[in-house]
Design a protein around this nucleic acid. Structure first.
Lengths: 157, 157
DNA sequence: GAGCAATACTTGACAAGTAAAGTATCACGA
DNA sequence: TCGTGATACTTTACTTGTCAAGTATTGCTC
């Protein structure tokens, strides 16, 4: 499949006012494509990509995490996390417990069942990431990461 | 604000298994940040970023477009478009009409009121795009666009 | 130590994305 | 011309993301 520029894809008569705009559009569209692939992949285990993220964060953390810590590490707002966590708890993939130190907080940790789900997804997920990055040279991948990190550092308006 | 790498942001103990994975994560997170900024901006006109996209596509097209054409140019599936279009029509920002040539199709076009909404958003939207791209050199922006175009060309699994 | 703001969620309400099924229309072959 | 399949939506149902408001704690200040 040949590379299609964004301008081709959206068939705009008046394509882009600036390279900035083209970059922004490309970023949004590309991320959407990637997200859908991830969704399709984790659906095999009956979870969504956001639930998968929660599990991965909990696995990555050595200790149980309070709900808000999870929210901070994800891109989501807190209310969304509460629901993901509810859902995951119902399925036994994570466990929640009150913590005496600060009773406002609820600590979450991944269960062995949750770990098994992640393990089953590790290989296909790696393959997916690699398939995308395979379009780029290692240098391009590095530059891409660098550029994205810079963009995220844009100060609030 | 200093640039924070993805690894910093999510505070993973076990950061990334590969650069591919880091790139994928950076892509998803960065796009999310951008999308929220866009949402916040267009909310001033009482529309969502997807409705804004519909309006922009209709402005970009010289002629009225059938619903499915809009769906194709966006990332959305058709059912979503129907709703956006319903909503925009209720507010008088677009107009829908049956077309004698193929009565299955419904042609949509932007109204003067819709054009005015877009015009009010043009300047702030340009400013937003530029603010993001301002973190990059023009060469970096070009490379970013190129890399994203390549990634989107990844064949299906 | 009494109040008052801040924190850490949780809940409710609503827009948006997605899949699946339904409806109307068209196109094409027998 | 009479199906038969394809096309272009539309509707329905369900999940997710987000905001606003509510609740339970905590911490800080006077």
């Amino acid at each position: 499949m040949a590379t299609r520029s964004i301008a081709d894809e959206i068939k705009q008569t008046r394509p882009f006012r600036s390279r900035s705009q083209e970059a922004a559009m490309a970023l949004l569209r590309t991320a959407n494509v990637l997200r859908r692939r991830v969704d399709a992949l984790v659906a095999a285990e009956g979870i969504t990509s956001q639930q998968y993220n929660v599990l991965r964060i909990l696995r990555g953390a050595k200790a149980p995490l309070p709900t808000m810590e999870i929210a901070e590490r994800m891109i989501d707002q807190t209310p969304g996390i509460t629901r993901h966590v509810n859902n995951l708890e119902e399925r036994g993939l994570i466990r929640r417990e009150a913590w005496a130190g600060d009773r406002r907080q609820v600590l979450c940790q991944i269960t062995p069942a949750g770990l098994r789900v992640l393990e089953r997804l590790d290989a296909p997920m790696d393959a997916l990431d690699d398939a995308f990055a395979a379009q780029l040279t290692p240098e391009q991948t590095d530059h891409l990461i660098e550029a994205l990190d810079l963009i995220r550092s844009t100060p609030d308006s």
